[in-house]
């Protein structure tokens, strides 16, 4: 594979929920444009913590200190800098959570939400964007006749695709997914995996997953984390067939220890 241009880059990032304990340490990780990068590793190793640095989610919970940088390209701005407004970061970096979390509003209003928040009022634009995002998320055919009914009535898999559509509507540069299929059945999961392959044409994706097959199938690059350290990063083919590190091999073969 030819070297692609970078969409983002983690540089020497350390972060902890309290000053004394660093949950992730000195992470260096490139995120290539229009690819899917998977973050894998045992529970508690800091995958979600790292992911939530990318949209400054940690800022919601009091004074936090990020050490190191996450550069977003092509602007080449360190989005962790205290001079950067976290809201502007979240305008560029979308996120889909582990548990589908539609707002208690209609399907239409769920997707329009991100646009309204950005002050967009033009009705025709919002209509188009809602349709477009639902199509991208593969949900349009199922919901086009009931856009103005409650999103809570959708199935779990549909709700998760709605959340993906909601994030896509705002045209993020980078889309973060934290175990997006762990609450879903195999069919919904397969649906979302297909979707990712399609989506990466227009957006760069960083995804946490516990499902190694999913990482191998859908991700172009895979990063393995262990106890807060990034152990190995490389093309998924290489990580899953020919890992360089012993710990990576132990993890992907299920021999842990």
């Amino acid at each position: 594979m030819v070297e692609k241009s970078k969409k983002a880059e983690v540089l020497n990032l350390s972060f902890g929920y309290s000053p004394a304990v660093k949950v992730i340490r000195s992470i260096n990780l490139p995120i290539y444009q229009n690819t899917v990068t998977a973050l894998i590793g045992p529970s508690g190793c800091g995958k979600s913590t790292l992911l939530r640095c990318f949209n400054r989610m940690h800022d919601l919970y009091g004074q936090v200190k990020y050490e190191g940088e996450i550069k977003l390209y092509p602007e080449s701005v360190n989005i962790l800098s205290s001079t950067v407004d976290p809201i502007e970061v979240r305008m560029k970096v979308g996120m889909v959570f582990q548990k589908p979390n539609p707002f208690p509003k209609s399907i239409f209003e769920n997707i329009a939400y991100g646009l309204r928040v950005r002050g967009i009022k033009k009705r025709s634009y919002i209509d188009d964007k809602v349709e477009d995002s639902l199509k991208k998320a593969g949900l349009w055919d199922e919901v086009s006749s009931r856009l103005h009914t409650s999103a809570a009535a959708l199935s779990g898999g549909q709700q998760q695709r709605l959340c993906i559509a909601r994030a896509l509507a705002t045209e993020p540069d980078l889309l973060l997914l934290d175990e997006p299929t762990s609450a879903l059945d195999p069919i919904s999961t397969a649906h979302i995996e297909e979707l990712l392959a399609e989506l990466k044409k227009s957006v760069t994706i960083l995804m946490v997953t516990h499902n190694l097959h999913q990482a191998a199938r859908t991700a172009d690059y895979t990063a393995f984390m262990y106890l807060g350290d990034l152990i190995e990063f490389g093309e998924s083919d290489q990580i899953f067939t020919n890992p360089k590190e012993q710990r990576t091999e132990n993890y992907i073969t299920g021999r842990f220890g």
Partner: peptide, 8 residues
């Protein structure tokens, strides 16, 4: 979090 993550 869902709302804030959308830039609200």
């Amino acid at each position: 979090e869902g709302s804030l993550a959308l830039g609200a």
